[in-house]
Amino acid sequence: MAIQYIFEILGTIVFAISGSLAAGEKSTGQDWFGVTFIAFITSIGGGSLRDMLLGSYPLVWINDVNFIYAIFFGILLMRLFYTYLDKYRKQLMLFDTMGIALFTILGTEKTLELGFHPVIAAIMGMFTAVMGGVFRDMLTNSIPVIFRKEIYATACLAGAILFLILYQFDVHRTLNFILSGSLIMAIRVLAVYYHWSIPKFR
């Protein structure tokens, strides 16, 4: 099984967990349909937007039912281990971090494979990673994370750029995935821990 496919399934699961946790946090009375809907949008929102902008059809989750199963699996994990998962989400924003790392690299590579310019690939990688979270935050009446002062989308761009550089030097695909994804996770975790932020516009 290709590492890209494994990462895409894992990214879908962790974003489903992230969406489920956000839904559960905002409303203790949230029903299963509401949680499932938010988890679904969080998981496939960024990738679907990317594919529509690039004209890549059918959308990944429509073409492969395993992504739907992955979403339900993430929701089930959240329900069974809510206390444990919520603890780590609050400490390190673990699931958002894992999700954006995986989806940034996947989105960047897919855009390259479709023949687009590397600059567009980096932007689409970022879109793939952050837009699901933007939709999640909007649905739960939160300020989208990319509009907060903390480093988020910038970490995705850094990882996408590293991926493109290593890609040009023909670094093995698996190693490139690991190094680029690790950079995103490291920047994000350090930014949360040390309260790094982007300078204000004015």
Rank of each mutant, 00 (worst) to 15 (best):
F169R: 12
I17L: 09
I68C: 05
T128R: 04
T28E: 13
V189L: 08
Y5E: 13
G19F: 01
D86V: 04
I165Q: 11
L80C: 08
M93P: 09
N66M: 06
I3A: 09
V60I: 12
M126L: 15
I105N: 04
K87F: 14
V60D: 00
M52G: 01
T83V: 11
V189D: 00
A22D: 01
I143A: 08
G133I: 08
L175I: 15
Q30P: 00
V189C: 02
I75L: 09
A155W: 06
A101V: 06
M126Y: 04
W61V: 14
T28C: 02
E109Y: 04
Q4T: 13
Y82L: 07
Y82F: 14
L77Y: 00
G115Y: 01
F201W: 14
F72G: 06
I13L: 13
F116W: 04
Q91L: 15
K200N: 12
L157T: 06
F103I: 03
G24M: 15
L53A: 11
I151S: 11
S142L: 03
V65E: 06
V130N: 10
Y84E: 14
V130G: 12
I120R: 02
N66C: 02
M1S: 15
N66V: 09
G107N: 05
Y88P: 11
I68S: 05
I100H: 06
L54G: 05
A70V: 12
G34F: 01
G55Q: 08
K110C: 00
Y193K: 15
S18M: 01
F147W: 05
F72H: 02
I44G: 01
Y152S: 09
F163Y: 15
V189Y: 10
V189G: 02
K149Y: 05
F73P: 01
A121R: 11
T97C: 10
D31C: 09
G55S: 07
W32Q: 06
L162Q: 11
G99S: 07
R202L: 08
Q4F: 13
Y57I: 05
L21Q: 07
D51V: 11
L157Y: 09
Q168P: 00
G132C: 08
L162K: 12
L139I: 13
R173W: 03
T104K: 12
G125V: 07
E113R: 10
L166F: 11
I68Y: 03
L49M: 11
N141H: 13
A158W: 03
R50W: 09
Y57Q: 10
A186I: 13
I6Y: 07
L106F: 08
L139H: 05
S56E: 04
D51P: 08
F72R: 01
T174N: 13
A122T: 11
T104F: 04
